[in-house]
Design a binder for these strands. Structure first.
Lengths: 148, 148
DNA sequence: TTACAATTCTTGTAGATGCAAGTATTGCGA
DNA sequence: TCGCAATACTTGCATCTACAAGAATTGTAA
């Protein structure tokens, strides 16, 4: 018998539904894992990015993470408050700040990659290594990221 | 030269980061698309599911969508308020309701699949048909959904 | 039957998020 | 150089979300 186009079928075959379901799941798992190192999930992405490249302004920080401006603004507030980063005046413009990690921030950031890896491995437990690589490549393509 | 393990590399190769980025993007697009048919993104998943299978209680509605209970409770509130569904007493238990779509709800639900399809197609524009099928299969596997 | 646990649903509350409006600064064309 | 648009960032507010606690009902075991 041919497959009925039930909404269940549509839903579970929907890229969007799958993404949303996985996003919720990953978010909860990250939250939990980040508790171990006392990092709020809210600031974690910023912290990792700054470890790689600080001395940038908030706008470009946000752009690199696909975060809206107001979000970055508040995230930097939280980073500063946690003692992980500081805003320094931009010598080229008085309307922007350059964000630098503190030593504490850099230290904390170094603990994050293993957390990320663990959560990813957990979520992808049912996939083989080859499948993981394939799905990441496909998602990069969908997200408009070209692998270097 | 070998690839440096920059956080940028880790981030963009991270399943979690990709999922979160895509989730945000899809959510925004769905919100926009659903405005055309005057449906809040909050209730849209419930509406679609109920079109396929109503007369179930809130608990199983939530389970099918991987939504927590409190979320379903408020979603049904919204559905009822919008005139798309009604709570009827469960003949088997006074502590649960069975949720049924109204005619308006059923009518509205019938407009949704094409919206879902359009947004999915938009997000997946850069992927071939074969690639789309592959990524959906892989995500289903990661989400623990077995294709029938 | 009685007491206690489990089920089903709701709600209070704190914090997160998104939008739009606001401030300050800079760039640029007339 | 004057005025207006663009840039960079912040904030108020309404809404949403997560968590935990609560209320009503039902199941169960002694």
């Amino acid at each position: 018998m041919t497959q009925i186009k039930s909404t269940k079928h549509i839903r579970e075959g929907s890229f969007g539904f799958l993404i949303q379901t996985l996003a919720r799941d990953i978010d909860a798992k990250m939250k939990l894992a980040l508790k171990e190192v006392d990092v709020d999930v809210k600031i974690f992405a910023n912290l990792m990015l700054l470890a790689d490249e600080d001395g940038i302004n908030q706008r470009s920080l946000g752009e690199k993470l696909n975060f809206p401006e107001y979000f970055t603004s508040r995230n930097v507030d939280a980073l500063v408050e946690a003692g992980f980063a500081e805003r320094r005046p931009d010598p080229n413009s008085r309307r922007s700040f350059l964000i630098y990690l503190t030593e504490a921030g850099r230290q904390k950031a170094s603990e994050l990659p293993r957390i990320v890896k663990r959560v990813n491995d957990d979520v992808l437990a049912d996939l083989t290594t080859a499948e993981r690589q394939r799905v990441v490549k496909l998602l990069q393509k969908a997200a408009g990221i070209r692998p270097e």
